[in-house]
Simulated assay, not measured.
Amino acid sequence: MLLSSIHHVAIICSNYEKSKQFYVDILGLEVIHEEYRKERDSYKLDLRIGDHSQLELFSFPNPPKRPSYPEACGLRHLAFRVDDIQQVCQKLTEHGIEVESIRVDPITNKRYTFFQDPDGLPLELYEE
């Protein structure tokens, strides 16, 4: 096999501070490194997800909006594995984040649901 795992996923946000607060304070991702790149007028924030994955959060001046939800070509959504989907949904709801009803995957019989980040990026919770 050529590929062994996903190292990171990169997201460009429209409001860096709002997205940083969402991913760090609400979702609880750990900050690895944060840097302001003056030549690009851009922040780059590396966040840890579990033991082996990372999320890179970027800010750029005037990024284009996502074409549609969620059926635009390219990344459809980002899914996070969770141990207790009900607990995570409750925490998100307490922070005013709208979460769809929990569904059951007909193939795996695992529970999952969707919510959005501050820019409307579709995010999934998938219970293991």
Rank of each mutant, 00 (worst) to 15 (best):
Q21L: 08
F22M: 08
S5R: 15
K20M: 06
I12C: 10
F115N: 00
F60Y: 12
K91V: 05
C13L: 05
S19N: 06
L55Q: 09
L125T: 01
K65E: 15
K91L: 08
P122Y: 04
E30N: 14
L123Y: 01
C89K: 15
D25P: 01
L125Q: 01
S53N: 15
K18G: 00
E98L: 03
L78S: 05
R81F: 08
G28F: 07
Q90P: 02
C13H: 04
D83V: 07
Y112M: 04
P61E: 13
E17N: 13
D84M: 05
L121R: 13
L29S: 01
F22H: 12
E100I: 00
R103W: 07
V31D: 11
L47K: 12
Q86R: 14
E17P: 00
V9Y: 04
V82G: 01
R37T: 05
E35I: 03
R111D: 00
L78F: 10
Y16W: 10
L57Q: 06
R103V: 00
F114K: 02
C89N: 08
L55H: 07
P63D: 09
I11C: 03
D117Q: 08
M1P: 06
D51R: 15
H95Q: 15
S14R: 15
N109S: 12
L45E: 02
Q54P: 01
C89I: 02
P61H: 13
P106C: 11
Q86A: 11
A79F: 01
E34D: 12
I26Q: 09
L75M: 15
R48W: 04
H7L: 10
G96S: 07
S42K: 12
S59E: 10
V82I: 10
S42V: 05
S14Y: 03
E30M: 09
L45S: 01
C13D: 03
P64G: 09
Y36I: 03
E98S: 04
N15Q: 10
H7K: 10
F58Q: 10
Y16L: 10
R48C: 02
L125A: 00
N15A: 06
G120M: 09
L121M: 14
D105A: 03
L55W: 08
S4H: 15
R37L: 14
L121N: 13
E30Y: 05
Y69Q: 12
F60Q: 12
I85Q: 07
D84Q: 12
K110Q: 11
F58I: 06
I107P: 01
